[in-house]
């Protein structure tokens, strides 16, 4: 009964209900806010979403292997203060990008070593690296300040042939994941996340699979910090303090199981879309004050519910013929 899945299902990457919710929210937002579909509105929306998209992508990869990673917010903080203090100096824009990615890679590799090789609890290890990273950010820049090079700002928040760079990054993330998940490593990620013991017994290299996941996640966080810096044009050591919650929310809304083995980056990107459009939509329809928080929470729960619907439906459908 193998049938080609319809376009909308492929678009959501297994998170079709969440995708429909996103389209619905976009529709409501666009009806209430006429400027939503102008190039100003669209590029604002994409720029608002891309930082979380990069960070949530990293987190998704780790979560798929059945581990947790809280270090993302810390890496974003370090990379932001680095960009604000270095990019006007000797390293320049590209040098800063390189250094920032290197830091992400390094934090990812340290996490990976402690968790994948030494077998320590990922939650505990990454709480530690989160706190260390936030501390380092405060040492590098004790109070908000610094300046991000104009080349970085215009390079990241601008257009390429009329298409917002943030949009290009979005598509690139989705495509990169489509490629990666079909590699040997990508298939191993799902297997390890679903059942590490069975994976090891069937000859998969569990530590290496997890190691690569953490390192890739670190790279994503570094990139997120760099893009964040471009968006705000300056440094602030506390910039990502409440970021972690949204990263996990995006992953969960996108239908990735926090137990590992199920889900994917495209779902998380949809989750990021929902979280970003939600803020705009609630403003546009005139929800004010504390009601915003209530609606925020309710929509998140609804989104997670819809996100879990597709696997549920699939399970029921599978059970029926038996």
């Amino acid at each position: 009964m193998a049938k080609a899945s319809p376009w909308y299902r492929r678009l959501g990457g297994g998170a079709t209900p969440a995708m429909l919710l996103l389209i619905l929210m976009l529709g409501i937002y666009a009806v209430y806010e006429p400027s939503a579909l102008t190039s100003f509105g669209i590029s604002n929306l994409l720029n608002n979403a891309i930082v979380l998209a990069l960070a949530a992508t990293g987190l998704t990869i780790v979560v798929l292997t059945g581990e947790f990673d809280l270090s993302g917010a810390g890496v974003v903080a370090i990379c932001n203060v680095m960009a604000a203090t270095l990019s006007m100096g000797a390293p320049g824009s590209m040098g800063t990008l390189g250094l920032v990615l290197l830091v992400g890679l390094l934090v990812g590799a340290i996490n990976a070593y402690l968790i994948a090789i030494l077998g320590l609890q990922s939650l505990a290890v990454t709480i530690g690296s989160l706190i260390v990273c936030q501390g380092i950010a405060l040492v590098l820049l004790p109070a908000p300040g610094g300046e991000v090079a104009e080349a970085i700002i215009s390079g990241v928040t601008g257009d390429l042939f009329g298409i917002p760079i943030a949009g290009i990054m979005f598509v690139a993330l989705a495509l990169a994941w489509t490629f990666l998940k079909n590699t040997r490593w990508g298939i191993a990620v799902y297997a390890v996340g679903a059942d590490p013991v069975a994976s090891r017994l069937s000859g998969l290299n569990v530590p290496t699979t997890k190691f690569i996941a953490f390192v890739l996640a670190g790279l994503c966080y570094g990139a997120a910090g760099f893009v964040y810096s471009a968006e705000i044009g300056s440094g602030d050591p506390r910039i990502s303090d409440s970021f972690l919650l949204y990263m996990f929310a995006a992953v969960a809304i996108g239908g990735t199981s926090l137990m590992g083995g199920r889900g994917g980056v495209r779902g998380s990107l949809v989750g990021v879309g929902i979280l970003t459009v939600m803020q705009k939509m609630l403003f546009a329809i005139g929800v004010a004050e504390f009601y915003t928080n209530i609606f925020n929470g309710l929509i998140m729960i609804a989104a997670i519910f819809f996100g879990q619907l597709s696997p549920l439906v699939a399970r029921i459908a599978r059970r029926r013929p038996a």
């Binding site: 604000a84 908000p144 300040g145 610094g146 700002i153 968006e231 705000i232 044009g233 300056s234 440094g235 602030d236 506390r238 910039i239």
Partner: peptide, 8 residues
Amino acid sequence: LSPTALNR
């Protein structure tokens, strides 16, 4: 929330 991040 930040003296610098909202400048743009």
